[in-house]
Design a protein around this nucleic acid. Sequence first.
DNA 1: CTGTTAGCGCGTTCAA
DNA 2: TTGAACGCGCTAACAG
Lengths: 346, 346
Amino acid sequence: MARTAGSGIRPTIRMVAAEAGVSTATVSYVMSGRRGEGGPGVSDITVERVRAAAERLGYRPNQAARAIRTGRTNTVILSLTMLSDPWSLSVIEAVQKAAAPLGITPLILGDADWVKVLQSHDADAVFVDAVTPEQRKPLEGLAARGTTLVVFDEQLEAAGFDVIRSVAGPGCTLAVEHLLAGHRKVGCVVPVRGERPPAGRRYEAYTSALAAAGIDLNEDYVGAFDGTTAGAYAATMRLLGRDDRPTALYATTDYAAVSAINAAQRLGLTVGRDVDIIGVGNAIEGERMSPSLSTVGPVDFFDRVARLLLKRAVDGGTQVPEVLDFPWQLFVRESAPHRSAANRLY
Amino acid sequence: MARTAGSGIRPTIRMVAAEAGVSTATVSYVMSGRRGEGGPGVSDITVERVRAAAERLGYRPNQAARAIRTGRTNTVILSLTMLSDPWSLSVIEAVQKAAAPLGITPLILGDADWVKVLQSHDADAVFVDAVTPEQRKPLEGLAARGTTLVVFDEQLEAAGFDVIRSVAGPGCTLAVEHLLAGHRKVGCVVPVRGERPPAGRRYEAYTSALAAAGIDLNEDYVGAFDGTTAGAYAATMRLLGRDDRPTALYATTDYAAVSAINAAQRLGLTVGRDVDIIGVGNAIEGERMSPSLSTVGPVDFFDRVARLLLKRAVDGGTQVPEVLDFPWQLFVRESAPHRSAANRLY
DNA sequence: CTGTTAGCGCGTTCAA
DNA sequence: TTGAACGCGCTAACAG
């Protein structure tokens, strides 16, 4: 009396075989579309009988069982730390578009504890958007055990997995320089971990570009926040609420820039006129919003990431891991337009 | 020469058994923590040996293989149509919090074509946030075949699955009446499918509340949009850009309300003073933003949904499906404060 | 050329 | 504490 738990019974390949009066092997060949080429041939009439039986029963191959045998799950996992970030949505959108024609399902993991999950759950490829120092070891362990990984990180070396390294430094300098062309009072909105002072390449681009322009760093113009959108909003309110408020803001991520724009508007300022704001990342949403977001970022980033991920998913871990560099570019849009000498704000 | 595809080899239960010098059965009992209580007893010394061997090899049970035997995947799927909606993020947040202590992993499906995915991929329970008419049939098919479903829908009858029916009608009326207490020029921001005119309970609440207040429906005050955040933004710009602009806006979803607030601020209006804006849904983010979002919605909605989903995931489809009704409530916050007769805007 | 048999690969679980 | 069967779909080798 074999039966799975629960009330409903899911049709198995054996039921279909019985219904069609053939063997399970034949059903398998028909369902996976692998008749002819290489495998044994199945007559058209039999194919039709099997198809009809499967249809009648509403049969769908059990992906879990299939995965055990083939090692393929027809699934990619996207581990995304900050789902509210338009950057994450851009990744999702690009991957979904690329995965659909391949019959691959993207599943999103919004959990910060992705290491544990990936140790038990298999996928044909996994995209990881952030790696803390403590996660580096287990990450390499995953790769060693055969998990196909594509990791977004600016520091990591490829150690059995692909690394997407969109080197932010030079691009971020472009952003700050763009603001410095029309402003002297340039503030910065930057996330920090814990109580530590701001750090990282994106922030260094700010300090060094200021220095290169002969401007002293004003700590009152640095709005550190906790990494949440609400925090970015509050930090911007503090910066722009000052009497000697900055006339331009450099936000080290696009989502911080979006929050900054909202905060500025809340204060009655017109972004792109009273204050210029630029972000970092070139998320797709930046183009669509109003005012559209000036930003720096890699060209064609999301589509290329999606293509790599799916190539890996299809090929398996066969290929040699790469470090993928992306050239960055300045995208001048409404939130921080070009300023000629004539319309400088300072 | 048995070996899985790819270069890395994943440790199996057999390797652990060999390493520890015991049978696979023993390893299984140890790993699933099912020794003692009900299950067979395993001596402490053996447990230690097995644990050490598993640790050395970095063994993790293969969830796919486990699923075949047990019928449980330790996974719940959240099918969410609009990931940028704070409502979706609220669902995710609540489910993640509730799932973590149970060892259950929430996976998010951002694909509109969830039916196909669910037909092949199993989960202990699935949350679905929107059902089109064409999806109703396949939905019932899924339920009949044993998929444990929790469906969010205001119309559907329970047909083998739970229905979360947060009856919006009366609650939405509360929202419109709240605005009508201080305004006569109340606009509406509402998504529409295709070219059809606005419809649905949330919109009817608007027209009937207006009628009850003796106010004629002004079609120029109805901002229909395409369902995207950018569309809601544009619709609001049109409404508030008019000379005789409405002094209050009723948005039929929270994400539309958020876009409306951004648009209003873009126009230099102070929300909660120059214009009042109210949403629908009571997404968690509404409390955190600034100005905080006035809204109507079910009380404690997300946590209760999460609890139900996980109860189903744990119990399997054992229980009798329910229709869950949620009482709605008005949440007065900054974006549409209380207005006494003294500070009416009209 | 067409179809079947038999056994694989997981982790689980019952009878011994 | 274990051997062996079990559940699933896949597939090499075989039979007609």
